[in-house]
Write a protein that binds this DNA or RNA. Structure first.
Length: 555
RNA sequence: GUCCCAGUAGCUCAGCUGGAUAGAGCAACAGCCUUCUAAGCUGUGGGUCGCAGGUUCGAAUCCUGCCUGGGACGCCA
Protein backbone atom coordinates (compact mmCIF):
# COMPACT_ATOMS: atom_id res chain seq x y z
CA UNK A 1 0.00 0.00 0.00
CA UNK A 2 1.38 3.40 -0.85
CA UNK A 3 1.37 6.56 1.18
CA UNK A 4 -1.63 8.03 -0.56
CA UNK A 5 -3.76 4.97 0.04
CA UNK A 6 -2.73 4.92 3.67
CA UNK A 7 -3.94 8.45 4.33
CA UNK A 8 -7.13 7.67 2.50
CA UNK A 9 -7.69 4.54 4.53
CA UNK A 10 -7.11 6.22 7.84
CA UNK A 11 -9.46 9.01 6.89
CA UNK A 12 -12.19 6.53 5.99
CA UNK A 13 -11.78 4.79 9.30
CA UNK A 14 -12.06 8.05 11.19
CA UNK A 15 -15.21 9.00 9.30
CA UNK A 16 -16.83 5.71 10.23
CA UNK A 17 -15.98 6.27 13.88
CA UNK A 18 -17.35 9.80 13.77
CA UNK A 19 -20.63 8.67 12.21
CA UNK A 20 -21.13 6.08 14.90
CA UNK A 21 -20.11 8.39 17.72
CA UNK A 22 -22.55 10.98 16.45
CA UNK A 23 -25.29 8.37 16.49
CA UNK A 24 -26.13 8.96 12.85
CA UNK A 25 -26.19 5.32 11.87
CA UNK A 26 -25.30 1.90 13.15
CA UNK A 27 -22.48 -0.11 11.74
CA UNK A 28 -24.95 -2.21 9.79
CA UNK A 29 -26.69 0.75 8.21
CA UNK A 30 -23.49 2.40 7.18
CA UNK A 31 -22.94 2.55 3.42
CA UNK A 32 -19.50 2.22 1.92
CA UNK A 33 -17.46 5.33 2.50
CA UNK A 34 -16.64 6.84 -0.84
CA UNK A 35 -13.85 9.37 -0.99
CA UNK A 36 -13.37 11.04 -4.30
CA UNK A 37 -10.56 13.23 -5.42
CA UNK A 38 -12.23 16.43 -6.53
CA UNK A 39 -11.26 17.88 -9.87
CA UNK A 40 -11.53 21.33 -8.41
CA UNK A 41 -8.71 22.05 -5.97
CA UNK A 42 -10.89 24.38 -3.92
CA UNK A 43 -12.82 21.29 -2.92
CA UNK A 44 -9.89 19.88 -1.04
CA UNK A 45 -7.85 16.71 -1.34
CA UNK A 46 -10.76 14.39 -0.67
CA UNK A 47 -14.50 14.85 -0.70
CA UNK A 48 -17.03 12.62 1.03
CA UNK A 49 -20.69 12.32 0.12
CA UNK A 50 -21.55 10.35 3.23
CA UNK A 51 -23.79 13.06 4.66
CA UNK A 52 -26.09 12.89 1.65
CA UNK A 53 -26.15 9.13 1.78
CA UNK A 54 -27.12 9.21 5.43
CA UNK A 55 -29.91 11.75 4.97
CA UNK A 56 -32.61 9.12 4.85
CA UNK A 57 -31.18 6.87 7.54
CA UNK A 58 -30.53 9.63 10.04
CA UNK A 59 -33.63 11.61 9.01
CA UNK A 60 -31.74 14.88 9.05
CA UNK A 61 -30.65 17.48 6.54
CA UNK A 62 -27.36 16.54 4.84
CA UNK A 63 -25.56 19.69 5.89
CA UNK A 64 -26.60 19.13 9.49
CA UNK A 65 -25.27 15.58 9.29
CA UNK A 66 -22.03 16.83 7.83
CA UNK A 67 -21.59 19.21 10.76
CA UNK A 68 -22.26 16.38 13.21
CA UNK A 69 -19.64 14.22 11.57
CA UNK A 70 -17.06 16.97 11.64
CA UNK A 71 -17.72 17.64 15.31
CA UNK A 72 -17.03 14.02 16.16
CA UNK A 73 -14.00 13.67 13.94
CA UNK A 74 -10.52 13.22 15.33
CA UNK A 75 -8.80 15.63 13.02
CA UNK A 76 -5.33 15.07 14.36
CA UNK A 77 -5.49 11.34 13.92
CA UNK A 78 -6.66 11.68 10.35
CA UNK A 79 -4.02 14.37 9.57
CA UNK A 80 -6.60 16.87 8.52
CA UNK A 81 -5.51 20.42 7.99
CA UNK A 82 -8.95 21.85 7.37
CA UNK A 83 -12.41 20.52 6.77
CA UNK A 84 -15.43 22.22 5.22
CA UNK A 85 -19.04 21.52 4.42
CA UNK A 86 -19.94 22.57 0.92
CA UNK A 87 -22.71 22.45 -1.62
CA UNK A 88 -25.59 20.12 -0.79
CA UNK A 89 -23.61 18.42 1.98
CA UNK A 90 -20.19 17.43 0.76
CA UNK A 91 -17.45 17.28 3.32
CA UNK A 92 -14.23 18.56 1.84
CA UNK A 93 -11.03 17.49 3.49
CA UNK A 94 -7.84 19.45 3.14
CA UNK A 95 -5.05 17.19 4.28
CA UNK A 96 -1.88 18.18 6.07
CA UNK A 97 0.02 16.76 3.18
CA UNK A 98 2.73 15.33 5.43
CA UNK A 99 2.55 12.30 3.25
CA UNK A 100 3.88 14.22 0.29
CA UNK A 101 7.32 14.14 1.86
CA UNK A 102 7.43 10.37 1.55
CA UNK A 103 6.71 10.23 -2.15
CA UNK A 104 10.11 11.17 -3.52
CA UNK A 105 12.12 8.77 -1.35
CA UNK A 106 9.68 6.01 -2.20
CA UNK A 107 10.13 6.56 -5.92
CA UNK A 108 13.88 6.99 -5.84
CA UNK A 109 14.21 3.80 -3.86
CA UNK A 110 11.84 1.76 -5.99
CA UNK A 111 13.10 3.15 -9.30
CA UNK A 112 11.96 0.86 -12.12
CA UNK A 113 9.75 -0.92 -9.60
CA UNK A 114 7.74 2.19 -8.82
CA UNK A 115 4.14 1.62 -9.80
CA UNK A 116 4.24 -2.06 -9.05
CA UNK A 117 1.83 -3.25 -6.39
CA UNK A 118 0.38 -6.45 -5.14
CA UNK A 119 -3.16 -5.39 -5.92
CA UNK A 120 -3.76 -8.55 -7.90
CA UNK A 121 -2.58 -10.81 -5.08
CA UNK A 122 -0.82 -13.10 -7.50
CA UNK A 123 -4.07 -14.08 -9.17
CA UNK A 124 -3.38 -16.15 -12.28
CA UNK A 125 -4.59 -14.49 -15.45
CA UNK A 126 -4.30 -15.70 -18.98
CA UNK A 127 -4.69 -13.27 -21.84
CA UNK A 128 -5.24 -14.67 -25.30
CA UNK A 129 -4.87 -12.09 -28.02
CA UNK A 130 -4.07 -11.49 -31.68
CA UNK A 131 -4.67 -15.17 -32.63
CA UNK A 132 -4.89 -14.19 -36.28
CA UNK A 133 -5.39 -16.98 -38.79
CA UNK A 134 -2.04 -17.90 -40.32
CA UNK A 135 -3.25 -17.04 -43.79
CA UNK A 136 -1.69 -13.67 -44.42
CA UNK A 137 -0.16 -10.60 -42.88
CA UNK A 138 -1.12 -8.77 -39.74
CA UNK A 139 -3.10 -5.66 -40.48
CA UNK A 140 -4.05 -2.45 -38.81
CA UNK A 141 -7.02 -3.92 -36.99
CA UNK A 142 -4.95 -6.74 -35.56
CA UNK A 143 -2.38 -4.22 -34.48
CA UNK A 144 -4.86 -2.53 -32.22
CA UNK A 145 -5.70 -5.81 -30.55
CA UNK A 146 -2.02 -6.60 -30.23
CA UNK A 147 -1.25 -3.28 -28.58
CA UNK A 148 -4.25 -3.53 -26.28
CA UNK A 149 -3.49 -7.08 -25.22
CA UNK A 150 0.18 -6.45 -24.69
CA UNK A 151 -0.30 -3.33 -22.62
CA UNK A 152 -3.04 -5.01 -20.62
CA UNK A 153 -0.61 -7.81 -19.81
CA UNK A 154 2.10 -5.35 -18.82
CA UNK A 155 -0.32 -3.56 -16.55
CA UNK A 156 -1.62 -6.77 -14.99
CA UNK A 157 1.92 -7.90 -14.35
CA UNK A 158 2.78 -4.59 -12.68
CA UNK A 159 -0.31 -4.80 -10.52
CA UNK A 160 0.73 -8.11 -9.08
CA UNK A 161 -1.11 -10.61 -11.23
CA UNK A 162 0.59 -13.65 -12.70
CA UNK A 163 0.11 -13.20 -16.40
CA UNK A 164 0.41 -15.61 -19.27
CA UNK A 165 0.21 -14.39 -22.86
CA UNK A 166 -1.13 -16.85 -25.35
CA UNK A 167 -1.68 -16.99 -29.09
CA UNK A 168 -4.16 -19.51 -30.46
CA UNK A 169 -3.01 -20.78 -33.83
CA UNK A 170 -5.88 -21.78 -36.10
CA UNK A 171 -3.87 -24.39 -37.94
CA UNK A 172 -6.77 -26.74 -38.59
CA UNK A 173 -9.96 -26.30 -40.52
CA UNK A 174 -11.15 -24.80 -43.76
CA UNK A 175 -9.06 -21.68 -43.83
CA UNK A 176 -5.90 -23.72 -43.93
CA UNK A 177 -7.17 -25.64 -46.95
CA UNK A 178 -7.95 -22.34 -48.58
CA UNK A 179 -4.46 -21.22 -47.79
CA UNK A 180 -3.06 -24.27 -49.56
CA UNK A 181 -5.20 -23.68 -52.66
CA UNK A 182 -4.28 -20.01 -52.69
CA UNK A 183 -0.60 -20.83 -52.53
CA UNK A 184 -1.10 -23.37 -55.26
CA UNK A 185 -2.73 -20.84 -57.58
CA UNK A 186 -0.04 -18.26 -56.92
CA UNK A 187 2.66 -20.85 -57.43
CA UNK A 188 1.32 -21.83 -60.83
CA UNK A 189 0.88 -18.18 -61.76
CA UNK A 190 4.49 -17.51 -60.84
CA UNK A 191 5.44 -20.16 -63.36
CA UNK A 192 3.38 -18.49 -66.03
CA UNK A 193 0.43 -20.84 -65.89
CA UNK A 194 -3.19 -19.87 -66.04
CA UNK A 195 -4.43 -20.68 -62.55
CA UNK A 196 -7.47 -19.20 -60.88
CA UNK A 197 -7.56 -18.21 -57.25
CA UNK A 198 -10.11 -20.17 -55.23
CA UNK A 199 -13.30 -18.32 -54.42
CA UNK A 200 -12.46 -17.89 -50.75
CA UNK A 201 -8.77 -17.53 -51.45
CA UNK A 202 -6.39 -15.14 -49.78
CA UNK A 203 -5.35 -12.40 -52.12
CA UNK A 204 -2.70 -10.71 -50.02
CA UNK A 205 0.85 -10.07 -51.04
CA UNK A 206 2.03 -12.48 -48.38
CA UNK A 207 0.70 -15.45 -50.33
CA UNK A 208 2.44 -14.31 -53.50
CA UNK A 209 5.68 -14.02 -51.55
CA UNK A 210 5.26 -17.54 -50.21
CA UNK A 211 4.71 -18.84 -53.75
CA UNK A 212 7.83 -17.05 -54.91
CA UNK A 213 9.83 -18.66 -52.13
CA UNK A 214 8.64 -22.08 -53.20
CA UNK A 215 9.61 -21.38 -56.79
CA UNK A 216 13.02 -20.20 -55.65
CA UNK A 217 13.55 -23.35 -53.61
CA UNK A 218 11.91 -26.02 -55.70
CA UNK A 219 11.47 -24.56 -59.16
CA UNK A 220 8.70 -26.23 -61.11
CA UNK A 221 9.05 -29.45 -59.16
CA UNK A 222 5.43 -29.30 -57.97
CA UNK A 223 3.74 -28.58 -61.28
CA UNK A 224 3.42 -32.19 -62.25
CA UNK A 225 3.51 -33.63 -58.77
CA UNK A 226 0.70 -35.66 -57.34
CA UNK A 227 -2.11 -33.23 -56.56
CA UNK A 228 -2.64 -34.46 -53.02
CA UNK A 229 1.03 -34.41 -52.22
CA UNK A 230 1.36 -30.93 -53.67
CA UNK A 231 -1.49 -29.54 -51.60
CA UNK A 232 -0.16 -31.20 -48.47
CA UNK A 233 3.21 -29.60 -49.00
CA UNK A 234 1.80 -26.17 -49.80
CA UNK A 235 -0.37 -26.36 -46.72
CA UNK A 236 2.52 -27.01 -44.37
CA UNK A 237 4.82 -24.63 -46.15
CA UNK A 238 2.21 -21.89 -46.23
CA UNK A 239 1.36 -22.39 -42.60
CA UNK A 240 4.96 -22.27 -41.41
CA UNK A 241 5.78 -19.25 -43.56
CA UNK A 242 2.72 -17.36 -42.40
CA UNK A 243 3.46 -18.10 -38.78
CA UNK A 244 6.99 -16.96 -39.21
CA UNK A 245 5.77 -13.70 -40.77
CA UNK A 246 3.34 -13.15 -37.95
CA UNK A 247 5.97 -13.81 -35.32
CA UNK A 248 8.39 -11.44 -36.98
CA UNK A 249 5.80 -8.70 -37.28
CA UNK A 250 4.78 -9.07 -33.67
CA UNK A 251 8.34 -9.00 -32.50
CA UNK A 252 8.92 -5.81 -34.43
CA UNK A 253 5.86 -4.44 -32.68
CA UNK A 254 7.40 -5.46 -29.33
CA UNK A 255 4.82 -8.11 -28.61
CA UNK A 256 5.97 -11.44 -27.25
CA UNK A 257 3.96 -14.48 -26.24
CA UNK A 258 4.62 -17.05 -23.56
CA UNK A 259 2.67 -19.73 -25.32
CA UNK A 260 1.68 -20.55 -28.89
CA UNK A 261 -1.24 -22.95 -28.71
CA UNK A 262 -1.95 -25.10 -31.73
CA UNK A 263 -5.55 -25.90 -32.61
CA UNK A 264 -4.35 -29.19 -34.10
CA UNK A 265 -3.13 -30.35 -30.73
CA UNK A 266 -6.76 -30.50 -29.63
CA UNK A 267 -7.68 -33.06 -32.26
CA UNK A 268 -6.02 -36.02 -30.58
CA UNK A 269 -8.39 -36.30 -27.67
CA UNK A 270 -9.29 -32.88 -26.20
CA UNK A 271 -12.21 -32.39 -28.55
CA UNK A 272 -13.74 -35.78 -27.92
CA UNK A 273 -13.30 -35.22 -24.22
CA UNK A 274 -15.11 -31.92 -24.36
CA UNK A 275 -17.90 -33.39 -26.43
CA UNK A 276 -18.23 -36.24 -23.98
CA UNK A 277 -18.54 -33.84 -21.09
CA UNK A 278 -21.28 -31.91 -22.84
CA UNK A 279 -23.05 -35.10 -23.79
CA UNK A 280 -22.96 -36.41 -20.26
CA UNK A 281 -24.77 -33.30 -19.08
CA UNK A 282 -27.32 -33.74 -21.86
CA UNK A 283 -26.45 -30.57 -23.72
CA UNK A 284 -26.02 -32.38 -27.03
CA UNK A 285 -28.53 -33.75 -29.51
CA UNK A 286 -28.71 -35.00 -33.08
CA UNK A 287 -30.81 -33.31 -35.74
CA UNK A 288 -30.67 -33.21 -39.54
CA UNK A 289 -27.62 -35.50 -39.58
CA UNK A 290 -25.69 -33.01 -37.47
CA UNK A 291 -24.70 -32.76 -33.81
CA UNK A 292 -26.02 -29.74 -31.93
CA UNK A 293 -25.20 -27.94 -28.72
CA UNK A 294 -28.12 -26.65 -26.65
CA UNK A 295 -26.60 -23.24 -26.13
CA UNK A 296 -30.06 -21.69 -25.82
CA UNK A 297 -30.24 -23.19 -22.35
CA UNK A 298 -27.63 -20.61 -21.40
CA UNK A 299 -29.12 -17.59 -23.09
CA UNK A 300 -27.84 -17.95 -26.63
CA UNK A 301 -30.15 -17.01 -29.54
CA UNK A 302 -30.17 -20.44 -31.10
CA UNK A 303 -28.56 -23.82 -30.70
CA UNK A 304 -25.25 -24.34 -32.47
CA UNK A 305 -23.93 -27.09 -34.67
CA UNK A 306 -20.85 -28.87 -33.35
CA UNK A 307 -20.43 -31.63 -35.93
CA UNK A 308 -21.53 -30.87 -39.47
CA UNK A 309 -23.42 -33.14 -41.78
CA UNK A 310 -20.15 -33.91 -43.56
CA UNK A 311 -18.61 -35.08 -40.32
CA UNK A 312 -16.31 -32.10 -39.80
CA UNK A 313 -16.33 -29.89 -36.74
CA UNK A 314 -17.51 -26.32 -36.88
CA UNK A 315 -15.13 -23.63 -35.65
CA UNK A 316 -16.89 -23.66 -32.31
CA UNK A 317 -16.10 -27.26 -31.43
CA UNK A 318 -12.32 -27.13 -31.11
CA UNK A 319 -12.74 -23.72 -29.52
CA UNK A 320 -14.86 -25.24 -26.78
CA UNK A 321 -12.17 -27.84 -26.19
CA UNK A 322 -9.60 -25.06 -26.17
CA UNK A 323 -11.43 -23.11 -23.51
CA UNK A 324 -11.93 -26.21 -21.44
CA UNK A 325 -8.20 -26.74 -21.64
CA UNK A 326 -7.51 -23.17 -20.59
CA UNK A 327 -9.81 -23.43 -17.61
CA UNK A 328 -8.31 -26.75 -16.61
CA UNK A 329 -4.95 -25.08 -16.47
CA UNK A 330 -6.15 -23.32 -13.33
CA UNK A 331 -6.36 -19.66 -14.25
CA UNK A 332 -8.44 -17.39 -12.06
CA UNK A 333 -9.32 -15.29 -15.08
CA UNK A 334 -9.11 -15.94 -18.77
CA UNK A 335 -9.31 -12.87 -20.95
CA UNK A 336 -9.94 -13.08 -24.68
CA UNK A 337 -9.22 -10.10 -26.88
CA UNK A 338 -11.43 -10.30 -29.96
CA UNK A 339 -12.21 -8.11 -32.93
CA UNK A 340 -15.60 -6.46 -33.12
CA UNK A 341 -16.66 -8.80 -35.90
CA UNK A 342 -16.57 -11.70 -33.43
CA UNK A 343 -18.77 -10.19 -30.75
CA UNK A 344 -21.74 -12.34 -31.80
CA UNK A 345 -19.65 -15.33 -30.83
CA UNK A 346 -19.51 -14.38 -27.15
CA UNK A 347 -22.88 -15.77 -25.98
CA UNK A 348 -22.26 -19.24 -27.41
CA UNK A 349 -18.76 -19.40 -25.94
CA UNK A 350 -20.03 -18.31 -22.57
CA UNK A 351 -22.81 -20.89 -22.88
CA UNK A 352 -20.24 -23.57 -23.59
CA UNK A 353 -18.22 -22.64 -20.54
CA UNK A 354 -21.26 -22.88 -18.32
CA UNK A 355 -22.34 -26.12 -19.92
CA UNK A 356 -18.92 -27.57 -19.16
CA UNK A 357 -19.54 -26.70 -15.55
CA UNK A 358 -17.22 -23.73 -15.11
CA UNK A 359 -18.17 -20.39 -13.58
CA UNK A 360 -18.61 -17.97 -16.44
CA UNK A 361 -17.34 -15.01 -14.44
CA UNK A 362 -13.79 -16.22 -14.95
CA UNK A 363 -14.30 -15.68 -18.65
CA UNK A 364 -13.83 -12.19 -20.03
CA UNK A 365 -14.03 -11.03 -23.61
CA UNK A 366 -12.63 -7.67 -24.55
CA UNK A 367 -14.00 -6.51 -27.86
CA UNK A 368 -11.68 -4.31 -29.87
CA UNK A 369 -13.68 -1.97 -32.07
CA UNK A 370 -12.75 -1.29 -35.66
CA UNK A 371 -9.95 0.93 -36.80
CA UNK A 372 -10.69 3.38 -39.57
CA UNK A 373 -7.66 4.56 -41.38
CA UNK A 374 -7.47 8.12 -42.61
CA UNK A 375 -4.91 9.56 -44.93
CA UNK A 376 -5.07 12.95 -46.56
CA UNK A 377 -8.43 13.42 -44.89
CA UNK A 378 -9.87 10.38 -46.65
CA UNK A 379 -10.99 7.12 -45.24
CA UNK A 380 -9.19 4.07 -46.55
CA UNK A 381 -11.26 0.94 -46.65
CA UNK A 382 -9.80 -2.19 -45.18
CA UNK A 383 -10.36 -5.52 -46.73
CA UNK A 384 -8.54 -8.69 -45.97
CA UNK A 385 -9.89 -10.39 -49.07
CA UNK A 386 -8.48 -7.99 -51.59
CA UNK A 387 -5.34 -7.65 -49.54
CA UNK A 388 -5.49 -3.91 -49.67
CA UNK A 389 -5.45 -3.28 -45.96
CA UNK A 390 -2.45 -1.61 -44.43
CA UNK A 391 -0.08 -4.20 -43.11
CA UNK A 392 1.31 -3.85 -39.61
CA UNK A 393 4.77 -4.01 -41.09
CA UNK A 394 4.08 -1.01 -43.32
CA UNK A 395 2.48 0.87 -40.48
CA UNK A 396 5.56 0.39 -38.33
CA UNK A 397 7.80 1.52 -41.12
CA UNK A 398 5.64 4.52 -41.79
CA UNK A 399 4.86 5.91 -38.33
CA UNK A 400 7.16 3.95 -36.04
CA UNK A 401 6.34 1.54 -33.24
CA UNK A 402 6.14 4.21 -30.55
CA UNK A 403 3.49 6.29 -32.27
CA UNK A 404 1.47 3.29 -33.38
CA UNK A 405 1.37 1.68 -29.96
CA UNK A 406 0.64 4.93 -28.21
CA UNK A 407 -2.25 5.73 -30.57
CA UNK A 408 -3.82 2.33 -30.13
CA UNK A 409 -3.93 2.55 -26.35
CA UNK A 410 -5.05 6.14 -26.08
CA UNK A 411 -8.66 5.23 -26.74
CA UNK A 412 -10.96 2.94 -24.87
CA UNK A 413 -11.12 -0.47 -26.56
CA UNK A 414 -14.83 -0.28 -27.19
CA UNK A 415 -14.73 2.94 -29.09
CA UNK A 416 -14.01 2.87 -32.78
CA UNK A 417 -10.68 4.40 -33.60
CA UNK A 418 -9.91 6.87 -36.33
CA UNK A 419 -6.26 6.39 -37.10
CA UNK A 420 -4.85 9.45 -38.80
CA UNK A 421 -1.71 8.40 -40.66
CA UNK A 422 -0.64 11.97 -41.31
CA UNK A 423 -0.88 12.78 -37.62
CA UNK A 424 0.88 9.64 -36.48
CA UNK A 425 3.86 10.23 -38.71
CA UNK A 426 4.07 13.94 -38.17
CA UNK A 427 7.11 14.96 -36.21
CA UNK A 428 5.25 17.86 -34.70
CA UNK A 429 3.52 18.93 -31.56
CA UNK A 430 0.20 17.70 -32.92
CA UNK A 431 1.45 14.26 -32.16
CA UNK A 432 0.79 13.43 -28.50
CA UNK A 433 3.46 10.79 -28.23
CA UNK A 434 6.18 13.40 -28.63
CA UNK A 435 4.67 15.48 -25.89
CA UNK A 436 5.21 12.77 -23.32
CA UNK A 437 8.59 11.71 -24.60
CA UNK A 438 9.68 15.33 -24.69
CA UNK A 439 8.88 15.70 -21.00
CA UNK A 440 11.17 12.78 -20.26
CA UNK A 441 13.94 14.11 -22.48
CA UNK A 442 13.67 17.54 -20.92
CA UNK A 443 14.33 16.14 -17.48
CA UNK A 444 17.30 14.20 -18.75
CA UNK A 445 18.73 17.39 -20.18
CA UNK A 446 18.27 19.18 -16.88
CA UNK A 447 20.07 16.45 -15.00
CA UNK A 448 22.83 16.56 -17.58
CA UNK A 449 23.08 20.33 -17.21
CA UNK A 450 23.27 19.98 -13.48
CA UNK A 451 26.32 17.77 -13.83
CA UNK A 452 27.92 20.21 -16.24
CA UNK A 453 27.42 23.01 -13.78
CA UNK A 454 28.98 20.95 -11.04
CA UNK A 455 25.77 20.56 -9.10
CA UNK A 456 25.69 17.41 -7.06
CA UNK A 457 22.68 15.38 -8.18
CA UNK A 458 23.01 12.61 -5.65
CA UNK A 459 23.19 14.80 -2.60
CA UNK A 460 20.72 14.76 0.24
CA UNK A 461 17.59 16.74 -0.19
CA UNK A 462 14.81 18.15 1.94
CA UNK A 463 11.52 17.34 0.28
CA UNK A 464 9.58 19.61 2.62
CA UNK A 465 10.98 22.58 0.71
CA UNK A 466 8.74 21.67 -2.21
CA UNK A 467 5.71 23.71 -1.31
CA UNK A 468 5.05 25.75 -4.46
CA UNK A 469 1.74 24.95 -6.12
CA UNK A 470 3.27 23.31 -9.20
CA UNK A 471 5.54 21.22 -7.00
CA UNK A 472 2.70 20.00 -4.84
CA UNK A 473 0.65 19.20 -7.94
CA UNK A 474 3.49 17.09 -9.27
CA UNK A 475 3.99 15.28 -5.98
CA UNK A 476 0.33 14.40 -5.68
CA UNK A 477 0.22 13.15 -9.23
CA UNK A 478 3.33 11.05 -8.71
CA UNK A 479 1.73 9.47 -5.66
CA UNK A 480 -1.26 8.33 -7.70
CA UNK A 481 0.70 6.23 -10.16
CA UNK A 482 0.50 2.86 -8.39
CA UNK A 483 -3.25 3.23 -7.97
CA UNK A 484 -3.68 4.16 -11.61
CA UNK A 485 -1.84 1.04 -12.69
CA UNK A 486 -3.83 -1.12 -10.30
CA UNK A 487 -7.10 0.32 -11.53
CA UNK A 488 -6.13 -0.13 -15.17
CA UNK A 489 -5.37 -3.77 -14.42
CA UNK A 490 -8.48 -4.48 -12.43
CA UNK A 491 -10.82 -2.89 -14.94
CA UNK A 492 -8.88 -4.00 -18.00
CA UNK A 493 -8.50 -0.43 -19.14
CA UNK A 494 -4.88 0.08 -20.21
CA UNK A 495 -5.64 3.50 -21.68
CA UNK A 496 -5.79 4.81 -18.12
CA UNK A 497 -2.00 4.56 -18.07
CA UNK A 498 -1.66 6.45 -21.33
CA UNK A 499 -3.86 9.15 -19.96
CA UNK A 500 -1.92 9.32 -16.72
CA UNK A 501 1.40 9.63 -18.45
CA UNK A 502 0.03 12.45 -20.58
CA UNK A 503 -1.30 14.31 -17.54
CA UNK A 504 1.99 13.92 -15.72
CA UNK A 505 3.82 15.30 -18.75
CA UNK A 506 1.48 18.30 -18.76
CA UNK A 507 2.28 19.06 -15.13
CA UNK A 508 5.99 18.69 -15.81
CA UNK A 509 5.94 21.09 -18.75
CA UNK A 510 3.93 23.57 -16.76
CA UNK A 511 6.33 23.32 -13.83
CA UNK A 512 9.30 23.65 -16.16
CA UNK A 513 8.07 26.91 -17.57
CA UNK A 514 7.27 28.36 -14.18
CA UNK A 515 10.27 27.27 -12.15
CA UNK A 516 13.97 27.29 -12.71
CA UNK A 517 15.25 24.04 -11.30
CA UNK A 518 18.98 24.70 -11.29
CA UNK A 519 19.37 27.70 -9.04
CA UNK A 520 22.95 28.16 -7.91
CA UNK A 521 21.89 30.71 -5.33
CA UNK A 522 19.73 28.19 -3.55
CA UNK A 523 21.45 24.87 -3.28
CA UNK A 524 18.98 23.29 -0.89
CA UNK A 525 15.98 24.03 -3.03
CA UNK A 526 17.89 22.93 -6.11
CA UNK A 527 18.64 19.57 -4.51
CA UNK A 528 15.02 19.08 -3.59
CA UNK A 529 13.89 19.95 -7.11
CA UNK A 530 16.44 17.66 -8.69
CA UNK A 531 15.09 14.85 -6.55
CA UNK A 532 11.61 15.78 -7.74
CA UNK A 533 12.73 15.77 -11.37
CA UNK A 534 14.31 12.37 -10.96
CA UNK A 535 11.07 11.07 -9.52
CA UNK A 536 9.06 12.42 -12.41
CA UNK A 537 11.52 10.95 -14.88
CA UNK A 538 11.31 7.53 -13.26
CA UNK A 539 7.53 7.61 -13.22
CA UNK A 540 7.27 8.73 -16.84
CA UNK A 541 9.72 6.06 -17.90
CA UNK A 542 7.85 3.37 -16.00
CA UNK A 543 4.56 4.47 -17.50
CA UNK A 544 5.95 4.50 -21.01
CA UNK A 545 7.48 1.12 -20.38
CA UNK A 546 4.04 -0.26 -19.59
CA UNK A 547 2.71 1.14 -22.86
CA UNK A 548 5.69 -0.31 -24.66
CA UNK A 549 7.00 3.03 -25.84
CA UNK A 550 10.59 4.23 -25.56
CA UNK A 551 11.64 7.01 -23.20
CA UNK A 552 14.37 8.92 -25.06
CA UNK A 553 16.98 10.96 -23.20
CA UNK A 554 17.39 13.42 -26.03
CA UNK A 555 15.07 14.62 -28.73
C1' G B 1 -36.27 -8.50 -37.23
C1' U B 2 -32.66 -9.87 -32.95
C1' C B 3 -28.01 -8.77 -30.53
C1' C B 4 -23.32 -5.79 -29.54
C1' C B 5 -20.64 -0.95 -29.64
C1' A B 6 -20.85 4.21 -30.23
C1' G B 7 -23.52 9.17 -30.19
C1' U B 8 -20.24 14.62 -25.03
C1' A B 9 -17.00 21.69 -27.76
C1' G B 10 -15.94 22.94 -35.05
C1' C B 11 -12.83 17.85 -35.21
C1' U B 12 -10.79 13.37 -32.40
C1' C B 13 -11.99 11.61 -27.77
C1' A B 14 -11.73 11.18 -21.96
C1' G B 15 -15.20 11.23 -17.99
C1' C B 16 -19.88 6.39 -16.81
C1' U B 17 -19.41 1.16 -9.22
C1' G B 18 -24.75 8.31 -9.70
C1' G B 19 -22.23 13.90 -6.90
C1' A B 20 -20.59 20.33 -6.68
C1' U B 21 -19.30 25.10 -12.22
C1' A B 22 -18.98 18.38 -17.73
C1' G B 23 -12.65 17.89 -19.21
C1' A B 24 -8.20 17.15 -22.66
C1' G B 25 -5.77 17.39 -27.43
C1' C B 26 -6.28 19.58 -32.18
C1' A B 27 -8.45 23.79 -34.70
C1' A B 28 -9.56 29.54 -33.68
C1' C B 29 -7.95 34.02 -31.16
C1' A B 30 -4.28 36.90 -27.83
C1' G B 31 0.40 36.70 -25.35
C1' C B 32 5.53 34.26 -23.63
C1' C B 33 12.33 32.38 -26.09
C1' U B 34 19.69 37.42 -24.04
C1' U B 35 17.41 32.27 -18.97
C1' C B 36 17.83 24.15 -17.57
C1' U B 37 15.31 21.85 -25.21
C1' A B 38 9.32 26.94 -27.84
C1' A B 39 8.29 19.11 -29.97
C1' G B 40 6.98 23.87 -24.53
C1' C B 41 4.01 27.49 -21.48
C1' U B 42 -0.04 31.24 -20.14
C1' G B 43 -4.84 33.16 -21.24
C1' U B 44 -9.75 33.71 -24.16
C1' G B 45 -13.88 32.01 -26.76
C1' G B 46 -16.59 27.52 -27.70
C1' G B 47 -21.65 22.51 -24.90
C1' U B 48 -30.00 21.33 -25.37
C1' C B 49 -23.68 15.41 -22.81
C1' G B 50 -28.58 12.11 -29.78
C1' C B 51 -34.21 12.64 -28.33
C1' A B 52 -38.24 11.60 -24.79
C1' G B 53 -39.79 9.62 -20.34
C1' G B 54 -38.53 7.24 -15.48
C1' U B 55 -35.69 6.18 -10.69
C1' U B 56 -33.08 9.72 -7.06
C1' C B 57 -31.89 14.81 -2.43
C1' G B 58 -28.82 14.69 -7.08
C1' A B 59 -28.30 11.64 -13.84
C1' A B 60 -23.44 12.60 -19.23
C1' U B 61 -23.35 8.24 -15.81
C1' C B 62 -28.70 3.74 -13.82
C1' C B 63 -33.76 1.87 -16.28
C1' U B 64 -37.37 1.96 -20.59
C1' G B 65 -38.64 3.51 -25.50
C1' C B 66 -37.14 5.89 -29.90
C1' C B 67 -33.51 8.20 -33.63
C1' U B 68 -28.58 8.09 -36.13
C1' G B 69 -23.79 5.65 -37.38
C1' G B 70 -20.84 1.06 -37.29
C1' G B 71 -20.62 -4.20 -36.59
C1' A B 72 -22.63 -9.25 -35.96
C1' C B 73 -26.54 -12.58 -36.83
C1' G B 74 -23.53 -19.55 -41.47
C1' C B 75 -23.69 -27.03 -40.86
C1' C B 76 -17.56 -19.93 -42.62
C1' A B 77 -13.46 -19.12 -39.57
Amino acid sequence: MNVLEQTEDILKQEIIEAVIKANLATKEQLPDIVLEKPKDKSHGDFAANIAMQLARIAKKAPRQIADDIINHLDQTKASIEKVEVAGPGFINFFMKNDFLGDIIPTILKAETEYGRTNAGNGEKVQVEFVSVNPTGDLHLGHARGAAYGDVLCNVLDAAGYQVEREYYINDAGNQIDNLAYSVEARYLQELGQDAEMPEDGYHGQAIIDIAKKIVAEDGDKWVNADKEERIAHFKEYGLQSSLENIKNDLQAFRVEFDNWFSERSLYKDKITEALKTLDKENYIYEKDDATWFKSTEFGDDKDRVLVKKDGNYTYLTPDIAYHKDKLDRGFDQIINVWGADHHGYVPRMRAAIQALGYPSDKFHVKIIQMVNLFEGGEKIRMSKRTGKAVALRDLIEDVGVDAARYFFVTRSNDSQLDFDMDLARSQSNDNPIFYVQYAHARICTMLEQAKNKGIETDSTYDATLLTAEKEVDLLKKLGEFPQVVAEAAEKHLPHKVTQYVFDLATLLHSFYNAVKVLDQDNEELTSARIALMKSVRITLANGLQLIGVTAPEKM
